[in-house]
């Protein structure tokens, strides 16, 4: 643990209380870990469980998780984190206790986790990025299309099988048009 750790006594106390609370109330049947900085990580059991869990965590009046820091994913093609292909990573924070929690969820190819846009509208772009980079689709997302890559791009660049130097240059932009936006869902 480096010296970049939050070390004022008050925060350490708050973090201990929150960690104990998570362990006591939410870790039953779920895997509970801490990372290199001692911050809590909670693995959701299933796709359904992840969405239920976050609603419980949000409603908990000790933890008060009210802020979504980040949504991302990583490729688990080497199987170190279970049999499923991807791991979704949700970083949540409380603006009152300042404790972080990392919620993890294993997602297989073709599985669709529930979108968090109904809880935090800010999840919209984050989930679009996950879709763009890994091809994970989200159930109930209002506008799931590519965000960083061009809509004509084929493949999902952050998957491990996508070669680093496989470029797809597009000499011209997509012409402006009204009407439904073409959803590039045929790319898997």
């Amino acid at each position: 643990m480096g010296n970049a750790v939050a070390k004022n006594a008050e925060f350490v106390k708050r973090q201990a209380i929150a960690t104990a609370r998570i362990q006591e109330k939410f870790s039953e049947g779920r895997q509970f870990l801490t990372d290199a900085l001692g911050e809590p990580i909670l693995w959701a059991k299933s796709l359904m469980d992840a969405f239920d869990l976050i609603q419980l965590l949000r409603a908990d009046d000790v933890l008060k998780f009210d802020f979504l820091s980040d949504i991302t994913a990583y490729d688990n093609v080497d199987g170190k984190d279970g049999a499923k292909r991807f791991v979704m990573v949700y970083q949540i924070l409380s603006t009152t206790t300042h404790v972080r929690l990392r919620l993890k969820l294993a997602v297989d190819l073709g599985e669709e986790p529930t979108s968090w846009t109904s809880l935090w509208p800010g999840a919209n772009w984050l989930e679009r990025e996950v879709f763009d980079m890994y091809g994970i689709k989200f159930k109930g997302h209002p506008n799931l299309r590519r965000i960083l890559m061009d809509e004509r791009f084929v493949g999902h660049p952050l998957r491990k099988e996508y070669p680093l130097k496989q470029r797809q240059p597009f000499p011209d932009n997509v012409p402006l048009h009204l009407g439904p936006h073409p959803l590039p869902t045929k790319n898997t």
């Binding site: 970049a4 990372d35 290199a36 900085l37 911050e39 990580i41 820091s69 980040d70 991302t72 990583y74 080497d78 170190k80 990573v89 970083q91 972080r100 990392r102």
Partner: peptide, 22 residues
Amino acid sequence: PGEVYSAVEGPNGELGFYIVSR
């Protein structure tokens, strides 16, 4: 091997790096 998320208060807001190491 391990993972860490650490963030600083950047000029524009929370600047965080999340590294998963194998």
